[in-house]
Amino acid sequence: MLATVIGFLYQFADTFAFLILSSVGLAIIFGMMGVINLAHGEFIMCGAYVTVLTARAGLPLPLAMVLGALTAGIIGMLIEYFVIRRLYTRLFDSIVATWAISLIATQGMLIVVGPSIEGLKTPFGSFDLAGLSFSWYRILLPVIALLILGGIYWLFMKTPFGVRARATIQNPSMARALGVDTDRVYALTFGLGAALAGLTGALYAPTMTTVPTMGSAFIVQSFVTVVVGGADVLLGAAPAAAVLAFIQSVLTASYGQLIGQVGLLLTVIVVVRVLPKGISGWMLRGSN
């Protein structure tokens, strides 16, 4: 019994962390800025590659992870400047453009770095409990996921940058009239989204195979979480991930991985049908 409860909690936290971390970058770029970023997975891949390569070159792992996130952020800002900036009002064009960026990044990485690089070892080892053994690092991931969510909330709700960013996204011309440098805010916000995606790649790099297509492992979960989270991404991400993680881990534990995936996607269909504005839209239903 104890083993079942502990095992379930661990699985739930693990899936929760994966959903949150998959979606944090996209929550900002797609959820807030409205850019359907099909290159999200490639920002994750970029963060992972930089982390693995610099860590193997001798940089301590936490620093390598920060560097991975920063690199993805800087590349994100460059892409925003050269491509995305022209497409804010052209939704479908931005889909095609980000898809192209995704293909170029995956294929470019394959040609330049090769089909795979040697990975890292997962840090911190494991511990035994109730006849099962668990990885410490995977206990840490949900904690980091929650800290990142808290950090984003603080940044957008409590800082001058956050106020400007929200103003720019709600009404760009009014924000400009009030003296906000909206171009800069867009670039920084997009860069932040890309950096968070890079951080996700960095955090999962020691637990996965580092290959050019690794971003695709995150892309479904990321869109699913943001869509289920709904209208207010800052509010919606955590409950959305909690609901989805609960359903997926219950089903995976009882019926295996396939049914877990099926359950995840069915839940999304039901939520989108019943709550078109997502979980956060339902939470805020009285407010406007």
Binding site: D14, G131, R138, Q257
Partner: peptide
């Protein structure tokens, strides 16, 4: 016996099932 879709990259549940 467990069959796993090709898209899956997270295995902690599978690992636990094996341990049990």
């Amino acid at each position: 016996e467990e069959f796993i879709p090709l898209s899956v990259s997270q295995f902690s549940q599978t690992i636990q099932n094996i341990q049990k």
